[in-house]
Design a binder for these strands. Structure first.
Length: 297
DNA sequence: CGGGACTCCTGCCAGC
DNA sequence: TGCTGGCAGGAGTCCC
């Protein structure tokens, strides 16, 4: 599912396809996505030149020359496919299961088709339609409802032990929920939070506030910060290499197999060196969490 | 106000 | 074999 590393991978794939190109056509399917498209969506995008593509949290932000920014969220099953003027289509994001990727490549659930001035086309497919698009003036970025309250980027300097100490202070919510909260830190999702907590030796059900009492447990907080960065950077590196494979290969999928230490590994032996535990699955606020009861405290 | 439940949607798969 | 129910998950919204 698209969490920060997957969105980053998609952004890196979209960048060369979109930057400097002019939008020459835009077609929408009759189905709306999670939210209705913004007013005059097509008209406002037509003829616009793309000057930049970047990521904030799990949002894709496309800057347009005319002073507008296109915001896109992939939801859970959103994916972009780039079709160059000649040659095979390139599916951005091989982190989805193979069947869904094939379906998208075959044109199923296509909701938006963007034509560019170099003859290429970019399509957005989204089986569950949890994704959505929005369009705003650049000046509205700071105050945009979906962006203004988002926490620091986990790979930036603002995400540190002091920040977590402040955010966790007095929190009764479990660590799992606290790290999933986009206001605490941006971009983490269900899968990576399990991985980060496993690497940090912390139980997902542990109350976040226990790490930030009157005297914050700085060591543990720093461990979370360090492992968050490590897990995300490894995943981005893996995604990036997938993209490269894809760019110079014949379009075959499956070169990249994500290896998780705990996610979806219930009943498997814990991979922590010298740990003899077995991965357990629990449900927290309707979501699965995976952890090792032996080495996570 | 914090925290949890519910909601959107469709594909997949275990179990009957 | 074919159907059904449960599950997957991002994040806004609602309610206690």
């Amino acid at each position: 599912m698209p969490e920060l590393p997957e969105v980053e991978t998609v952004v890196r794939g979209l960048r060369p396809a979109l930057e400097n190109r002019v939008i020459s056509g835009l077609a929408l399917s009759p189905h709306r996505l999670r939210f209705p498209y913004p007013e005059n969506f097509v008209e406002r995008l037509m003829g616009q030149r793309v000057i930049g593509v970047r990521r904030r949290a799990k949002y894709i932000l496309v800057s347009l020359e005319g002073g507008q920014t296109l915001l896109w969220h992939l939801g859970m099953t959103g994916r972009f496919t780039v079709k160059p003027p000649a040659g095979p289509a390139r599916n951005l994001g091989e982190f989805y299961d193979e069947a869904a990727t094939e379906a998208a490549s075959a044109g199923a659930h296509e909701h938006v088709t963007l034509s560019l001035d170099d003859g290429s086309r970019i399509t957005y497919s989204d089986a569950r339609r949890f994704g959505f698009a929005d369009l705003m003036a650049d000046a509205e970025m700071e105050t945009h409802k979906l962006l203004r309250d988002i926490g620091p980027e986990p790979l930036g300097n603002e995400f540190n032990a002091e920040h977590l100490a402040r955010e966790f202070h007095g929190k009764k919510a479990p660590l799992k929920a606290a790290l999933l909260d986009q206001h605490v830190v941006a971009g983490l999702g269900n899968i990576y939070v399990s991985e980060i907590l496993h690497r940090s030796g912390l139980r997902p059900a542990r109350a976040a506030g226990t790490l930030s009492a009157r005297k914050p447990n700085t060591q543990k907080l720093e461990l979370i910060v360090r492992n968050t960065r490590a897990v995300l950077e490894e995943a981005i590196a893996a995604g990036g290499s997938t993209l490269q494979d894809f760019a110079h290969a014949d379009g075959s999928a499956g070169a990249y197999q994500q290896r998780f230490a705990v996610y979806d590994r219930e009943g498997s032996p814990c991979q922590t060196p010298s740990c003899t535990g077995t991965i357990k699955r629990i449900v927290q606020s309707g979501r699965s969490s995976f952890y090792c009861p032996r080495c996570q405290k």
